[in-house]
Amino acid sequence: MATQDKPHHLGHRERLKKRFIDAGSDALADYEILELLLMQFVPRRDVKPAAKFLIQKAGSLAKVMDLPQQTIALAPGLGDKTAFVFEVLKAFNKQAKRQAVVKKASFLNRLDLLEYLYDKMTPLKHEEFHVVYLNSKNHVLAEEMLFRGTIDSSVVYPREVIKTALEKGARSLVLVHNHPSGDPTPSQDDFHLTTEIQKLAAPMGILIEDHIIIGDGIHYSFSDQGKL
């Protein structure tokens, strides 16, 4: 009785795994790295077409996780179950980055903070106002969303910002919000809000380190622009 040949993609999987183990990710193309991930959830199908489909839709490997769940489900051979796994991975990645930022010793180098903020706030279709609370040694105490909606003085209550800072024992704050339009240029409301919070913070000995507005791949820093 003749032995039936294994499907060609099974041999491809084994070779791909071996290349990754022997030489690391630098030896693989972007779609091959995505293939390796998809193999863990799609055990009996050639996932190369799905990997190439997702990268083509996203524009790059780095942006695959930003794809909507519905788009991922449309990739050849994937479907809703695999798309849901991507949503879980996305949530895991976001939460892990958040915890890494909160546990950093300080924000003397703000690259980690900015990367975290871009990942968290760029995809939002609505405005959110967040505060990063720091102690006297510039160590992170917490990062929280305080308000959601159109960010102006009628929605964000400066007294609530300072009250929360005092409750946490914060000595300085980084204010953050996003502009869903993608343009981080501050509005008059943004300037007014920053000034109002500063006025309340100063008598309490609380410093406003910065107010960062996140746009689409670009941000505005009140501190960098000399507006604080």
Score class of each variant (00 low, 15 high):
Met1Arg: 13
Ala2Thr: 11
Ala2Cys: 05
Gln4Ala: 09
Gln4Thr: 15
Asp5Arg: 06
Pro7Trp: 13
Pro7Asn: 07
Pro7Lys: 06
Leu10Asp: 04
Leu10Arg: 09
Gly11His: 11
Arg13Val: 03
Glu14Ala: 06
Arg15Asn: 07
Leu16Val: 03
Leu16Lys: 03
Lys18Val: 01
Lys18Asp: 09
Arg19Val: 01
Phe20Arg: 08
Ile21Ala: 08
Ala23Gln: 11
Ala23Tyr: 13
Gly24Thr: 05
Asp30His: 06
Ile33Gly: 02
Ile33His: 07
Leu36Phe: 06
Leu37Trp: 05
Leu38Val: 06
Val42Trp: 01
Lys48Met: 04
Lys48Asp: 02
Ala51Leu: 03
Lys52Phe: 01
Phe53Trp: 05
Ile55Leu: 04
Lys57Asn: 04
Lys57Arg: 10
Gly59Thr: 03
Met65Trp: 05
Gln70Cys: 07
Thr71Phe: 00
Thr71Ala: 04
Ala73Asp: 02
Ala73Asn: 03
Gly77Trp: 00
Leu78Pro: 01
Asp80Val: 08
Asp80Pro: 02
Thr82Gly: 00
Ala83Thr: 01
Val85Asp: 05
Val85Ala: 04
Val88Asp: 11
Leu89Asp: 07
Leu89Val: 07
Leu89Trp: 11
Lys90Glu: 13
Lys94Leu: 13
Arg98His: 15
Arg98Val: 08
Gln99Ile: 12
Gln99Met: 14
Gln99Thr: 12
Val101Glu: 02
Val102Pro: 02
Lys103Cys: 03
Lys104Val: 08
Ala105Arg: 15
Phe107Trp: 14
Asn109Ala: 07
Arg110Gly: 04
Leu111Cys: 06
Asp112Gly: 14
Asp112Leu: 10
Leu114Lys: 10
Leu114Ser: 05
Glu115Lys: 14
Glu115Met: 13
Lys120Trp: 10
Lys120Pro: 03
Pro123Gly: 06
His126Thr: 14
Glu127Ser: 05
Glu127Cys: 05
Glu128Met: 04
Val132Phe: 02
Tyr133Gly: 01
Tyr133Trp: 01
Leu134Gly: 04
Leu134Glu: 04
Asn135Asp: 14
His139Pro: 00
Leu141Phe: 00
Leu146Asp: 14
Phe147Ile: 13
Arg148Gly: 13
Ile151Glu: 10
Ile151Met: 14
Ile151Asn: 05
Asp152Phe: 08
Ser153Gly: 12
Val155Met: 09
Val156Asn: 08
Tyr157Asn: 14
Tyr157Ser: 12
Ile162Tyr: 06
Lys163Pro: 00
Lys163Ser: 07
Glu167Met: 11
Glu167Cys: 04
Lys168Gln: 15
Ala170Ile: 15
Ala170Asn: 15
Ser172Asn: 13
His177Gly: 09
His177Asn: 15
His179Leu: 13
Ser181Cys: 11
Gly182His: 15
Asp183Lys: 10
Asp183His: 09
Pro184His: 10
Pro184Tyr: 13
Pro184Leu: 10
Ser187Val: 02
Ser187Arg: 04
Asp189Ser: 14
Asp189Glu: 14
His192Thr: 15
Glu196Ala: 11
Gln198Thr: 12
Lys199Gly: 02
Ala202Cys: 06
Ala202Lys: 15
Gly205Glu: 06
Gly205Pro: 05
Leu207Phe: 15
Asp210Val: 09
His211Ala: 15
His211Trp: 14
Ile214Glu: 07
Ile214Ala: 08
Gly215Tyr: 10
Gly215Leu: 10
Gly217Met: 14
His219Tyr: 15
Ser221Gly: 00
Ser223Gln: 08
Asp224Trp: 10
Gly226Ile: 00
Lys227Trp: 07
Leu228Ile: 13
Leu228Gln: 03
